[in-house]
Amino acid sequence: MLFSFFLVSIPIVLAQQHNAEPTVDGSCDDGWQSFPNVTDATAYPNWIIDEELGAYMPVYQTTGLNASEVTRAVIILHGKERTCWTDWNAANNALYNATYDDSTIERDEISILSPCFFDEDDLEAGAAQDGQLLWGKRTWMSGHRNVAPDSISDFSSFDVLDALVDYYMNTTLYPNLKVVVVAGHSAGGQMSQRYAALRISTENDDQLHFWIANPASLLWLTSDRPVPNDDCKGFDRYKYGLASKYPAYATANARVLGREGIIERYNGRTLNYAWGLKDNGDGDTRCQAMTQGSTHLKRGKNFVSMLEDMGGIPNLTTIDWVPKVRHDTEKMMASDAGVDKLFRYMGNSTDA
């Protein structure tokens, strides 16, 4: 009797990984009650920001990487809700998207870090701890000073970003690092943009990128506005403009450079803007923001028009209009444009 055997090849389809968002009790208004563990991340409650001052704060960082193999670092800035665990997880899921679709992007070469700018409500509720750097409920996004602990004063949230950038730029720790991306959506996008404008130049700036996604308002470069309002006082003061009222972090440097010097430095950086084409929420309803436009998207379009009127889109600037996306952190990060700018784009780096 003759038996015939047919070897059937069954294709194996690998599922794309997507980690669930951690659940945390509490709220933005009343304070978060815990600093949760996040899949694929190490939660550091006391990450050293300034060893001499004894300044530390909580951060999440990708776990299990060999620092000598890391070529790219992405510093994720959370939104106004201060849910740093959510934004870190969104970026990590976007990286899963990236590696699933593009074999040239290697997870083992990308470190994601998200600092947590907690406030005193978070301390009382349980997410923050005594001794950690704390900020006002919204002041962290503009580079203003910490409010606690009492032993440390006049420490800007932009000082924190300087320290995190310097950490990754340390060639002893990360000898093969090529790019650091300071990235944020919504309030995180506001922070990224204003930090890009006020950060003092260093020799490594050609390796530094800024991803600015769906900010509720922008640091406007010119003194005029697309929607003028004569009754709106302070529309050109920081954080909405460049006329005055800078945080202490930038006061001396801004006095030396002036508006034109700040603009020249800012537009000389690698700036990657992104707006969702369905982001029609108003976000910031203060009159200073409304002079920029009535919605996130309109403010973005008006800002781009301003850049064009100033002489054209700067050479190192990119503009991404993301279709079918509203005010959604994870969808913006996981979009083709988000994946490209966060995990692939080399821009003006030295090895581009």
Rank of each mutant, 00 (worst) to 15 (best):
D224A: 07
D224W: 12
R225T: 06
V227N: 14
D230K: 08
D231R: 11
K233N: 10
G234A: 01
F235V: 13
D236F: 02
R237A: 07
Y238H: 15
K239T: 09
A243R: 15
A243F: 02
S244E: 08
S244M: 07
K245W: 05
K245P: 09
P247I: 02
Y249H: 10
T251L: 13
T251Y: 06
A252D: 11
A252S: 12
A252R: 12
V256K: 15
G258E: 00
R259Q: 06
R259Y: 01
E260M: 06
E260D: 11
I262S: 07
I262D: 07
I263L: 01
I263D: 00
E264M: 01
E264N: 11
Y266A: 01
N267V: 13
G268P: 11
G268E: 02
R269Y: 01
T270P: 00
N272M: 11
Y273L: 14
Y273C: 11
A274H: 08
L277H: 07
D279W: 07
D279S: 09
N280H: 13
N280A: 09
G283K: 02
G283F: 01
G283S: 04
D284P: 08
T285W: 08
M290R: 13
M290V: 04
T291E: 00
S294C: 05
T295C: 07
T295M: 03
T295G: 09
H296T: 06
H296R: 13
L297R: 13
L297K: 14
R299N: 05
R299C: 05
G300Q: 07
N302Q: 09
F303G: 06
L307V: 11
L307W: 10
E308D: 10
D309V: 05
M310G: 09
M310Q: 14
M310Y: 08
G311T: 12
G311P: 15
G312M: 04
I313A: 02
P314Q: 00
N315R: 13
N315M: 06
L316K: 15
T317L: 08
I319R: 15
W321F: 08
W321H: 12
V322C: 03
R326S: 15
H327F: 06
H327E: 04
H327N: 14
D328E: 05
D328Y: 08
